[in-house]
Structure formats: structure tokens, C-alpha cells
Design a protein around this nucleic acid. Structure first.
Lengths: 246, 246
DNA sequence: TTAGTATGATTGATTTTGAATGATTTTGAC
DNA sequence: GTCAAAATCATTCAAAATCAATCATACTAA
């Protein structure tokens, strides 16, 4: 069997079970312990999994690193997200200076974007590439690209952002809560989001209905700092937040 | 059987199974091991598949987004570029602070890179993603994302670079000339390259033999500022440039 | 014919694999 | 907590698989 095949199988098993032991691999793939170990070491070096005593586990990405994961995630409330994204995209004017946050929902905006005369700034690598392909003037924030091929984070990113003053910014979020505000799982990510929100004259947070009353690890902004764009009426939030329905 | 037919069949099999061994091919196509190997080598050189130990697999689709522009260019002198890249990659030490220029040749370096303990800075989006996936500490220079390529350029990129001091830098070039030095077609890219070269204690320029005595639009560095890495002896350049043969 | 090319077999070199070894880490009893 | 047994590990080595290079043969086209 080709080592590539084995590697793929190991990653598939991991995707299924989230962790695997060396012994399990020797049985499942019918290979020697040595080979199983060697494969684990290789995949670990390549960053595809994390080697631990006894076997291997999936790296815990805060942001999805491979397409399939992003794909799966974007399945949830896909239509709603698209509707919200479409509305958000319609808010962009030719003279705008736009910040575009990383994430699946903001990603959908690109499909509905007709206005490419505006200038875009983003920390999302994929979004920047798509925008550039559309012929837009796009600036990619510099900084650390962490184990995620998605978004740029870190001190450099934050410092750079402080020099910019956006007319509008579009953000994704993992949770919207009356007490915790807008939250996201990753601290570094949160820092970038927070800074970017502060630099926006008007910050829009795109939330499909699954995000309400959800609290993730780190708050990146209070409800007051942004306008919520969503699809379904959220009565309990209307008194303490500005909500626009797509 | 015509070799073209075999090639098509091999690619069809690959499309079906994603990977195939040499032995499988000898049985399925009823050809000798030698022929199977030769076909694999040819298709690999043409970039239609990736030769691995024991057989062949389909090219990596993970970074397909940015590939297409790169793919076509990479046909010329593929093997030479790879050899040069392999040698260049071997120069990287754990404690190094590396600048990695955009381009196909520098891109090949990533495949040979075992040392991911070093810190990398790059203006190439695709390279940054690959490095991050390998688990390396990688900083992506911020700036404007050009429509045509996958490289970041512009004032912001240049200014950011001036704060960095690299132990080693690896650069691609479109031309090497005794009078014009290292040249590249795009002025913006030239500016970034020039700045990056200046910030390197040691700058390596990777040139396959097709680049010699070629002059492109804009000079980004004099021959004296960099060490040339190439594959074939270049007598006429040896007196005025430092050349290392891979 | 004769040069040019494709094929298949053979060879020694290289790479991968699996088993064995002793070292290291974890576990569980105390 | 300590200690010893069990499990897991990294390293080494030889066997097996695979490879690149070479050569002889067969076929093709001028």
C-alpha cells in the first residue's frame, strides 16, 4: 500500500473518531507498529495531526484549516446565512472603505458583491483572494498565519488595523448573548475582531438565528458596538441592540 | 498500445482511485514495470500526477484556489527548479529567520522543507498557507493583493519589511543579466523584492538555467547583493557573481 | 538499409518496512 | 507521595520492495 493511502486512511479514521491509538492503527490498516508510528510522526510533522503518547489526535483548530470542515460548518443554516450575506453585500457603496472579517457568513457576501469599486481590507486569506480575483482593490492585513490557512491574527495584525478607519465593517460571530455580547472561540481571533470593530464607523455583525443566546469563549465586542444583521425576529434582543432584518 | 492511450488510462484510473501502485498498473494495463514507471515519470513531469514511492497519486487539491496561474508556469525546467529548490531548502537551519519570496521555484522549496522550527516571513499567500499547514511559525506580510498573482505588494508591504532583519532570504527571478542584474516584469513586485533583499543578511536567488542572460522589465537587485543558486555551470557569470551549484 | 524510438528485462542502488532492542513514560498498587 | 510493572517509545538492523540506470531487442519511418 502507498504511504499516501495509509496517511489518508489515518486522517479519515481520525476525522471519524477524533483520536486513535497506535495499536488500533496496526489492526485497522494491517500494518506493523513501526509503520504506524512512522506515519504518525510524518503526519505530525506535516501538521495534519498531533502526536500524543499512545497514538494521535486531531489538532483542535479554532478556525477550520481544510475545506471539508468549512464545508460542513457552512451547511448549518446555509440558506439563512446566504440571505443575510446578500443583504449585507447590498449595503456596500462605491465610496466605502470596508473591513471584511473572516468566516463563512462573511464569505457568502462575496458571491453577492456587485460593487467592487469599494476598497476592502480583510484578515481572511481566502476572502482576499476571491476579492482580488473579482478585480477589487483589496488589502490583506499582515500578521501570523496560525495553523489555520484561513485568517491572519497577532500583534502585527492588530497594530496595522489601528491605522485604518473603515466606513463599514462586516463581522461574523459564534455567539450573541445579552450578557456576554458577541463571542468567538479563539482569543487571538477575538483580539483582531475587537480592534477591527473599533475602527469601523459602522460595524455589522452577521448572525443567523442559531447564534442567539450562545456564548463562546471570548467576547470581542458589546452588543452596543454593532448592528446585528439577522433573518428571524429576535424580540428579546431588540431593546438592547440595533437589529436589522434581511 | 500507444503511449497516449496508456497515459489517458492511467489518469482515468487515478481519477477513480486517487492513487495507484506501479504493480497495479502493470497488471491493469498489461505492460512491463519499466513502461509503467516511464509513464509515471512522464506524467509527473507534465504535472498531471504526482510520483510517489510505489506509484502515483493525484495532485494536491488542497490549495487549488491559488494554483491555476502557477500551474502553467511551472512546466518549464520543472526538474531543475526542483533540484535547486531542494538544495535551497537544505540551507534552512532551526534558528533561522527566513524571508520567502513568491514564485514557483521558491514554492518547490516547501516540498523539501523539513525544518519547520525556523520562522518564516513571506508575501506569497499560497506559500504562507502551505507553511502554516506544516505547522511552521509563519508571518504573512500585509498589503495589497494583486489581481494577477498570489503575492502581496504595495507600500504597506515595503514598510513592514523594513522592520524585519532576516538571516536568510530566498528569491525567484525572471532574468539574470551581467548588466541589468536580477529583473522581474512587475514594478510593484520589484519594489517588494528589492526591499526584502536589503533586509537579508544572506540573499539567495534561485535561477534555473533558462533565466541567464534574460532581462525583464525592472531590476530589483544587483548581482552583487545575492548568491545565485543554479543547476548548470555559468562560466560567464562566475567572475561577477557568487554562484552555488545545487 | 539505418537512425530513431519504444519496450521489456536485468542489475545494483535506494527506500520502505517490520521485528528486536533497550530507553522512556504511564499506570496502578501501596 | 514512591515504586515496580506494563505500556509505549525511539533506535537500530536486516529483509523486502521499489527505484534508476543500463542494455538488448523490436518496431518505425526516412
Amino acid at each position: 500500500m502507498l504511504s499516501e493511502q495509509r496517511h489518508k486512511m489515518i486522517l479519515d479514521i481520525l476525522k471519524e473518531k477524533r483520536s486513535v491509538t497506535v495499536t488500533e492503527l496496526t489492526n485497522l490498516l494491517n500494518i506493523s507498529e513501526s509503520t504506524a508510528r512512522r506515519d504518525i510522526v510524518m503526519l505530525d510533522k506535516a501538521g495534519r495531526l498531533v502526536k500524543v503518547f499512545g497514538g494521535a489526535v486531531l489538532p483542535d483548530h479554532t478556525y477550520q484549516m481544510a475545506e471539508p470542515t468549512v464545508m460542513q460548518k457552512s451547511e448549518v443554516n446555509r440558506e439563512e446565512k446566504k440571505r443575510i450575506a446578500k443583504y449585507a453585500a447590498s449595503l456596500i457603496q462605491p465610496e466605502d472603505f470596508i473591513y471584511l472579517d473572516a468566516g463563512t457568513t462573511t464569505g457568502y457576501m462575496l458571491d453577492f458583491m456587485e460593487e467592487t469599486k469599494a476598497t476592502f481590507v480583510t484578515n481572511a486569506v481566502a476572502h482576499a483572494q476571491k476579492l482580488a480575483a473579482k478585480g477589487a482593490h483589496v488589502v490583506l492585513i499582515g500578521g501570523t498565519l496560525k495553523n489555520s490557512t484561513e485568517a491572519v491574527v497577532g500583534t502585527m495584525a492588530v497594530l496595522t488595523l489601528k491605522d485604518y478607519h473603515f466606513t463599514k465593517g462586516f463581522f461574523g460571530t459564534n455567539g450573541v448573548s445579552r450578557t456576554a455580547g458577541f463571542t468567538t472561540p479563539d482569543a487571538n481571533e477575538a483580539l483582531v475582531k475587537r480592534t477591527a470593530v473599533e475602527q469601523c464607523m459602522k460595524a455589522y455583525v452577521l448572525c443567523d438565528n442559531s447564534k442567539f443566546n450562545v456564548v463562546s469563549a471570548v467576547t470581542f465586542s458589546s452588543l452596543a458596538s454593532g448592528t446585528i444583521l439577522t433573518d428571524k425576529k429576535q424580540e428579546e434582543f431588540e431593546e438592547i441592540a440595533t437589529i436589522v432584518y434581511a
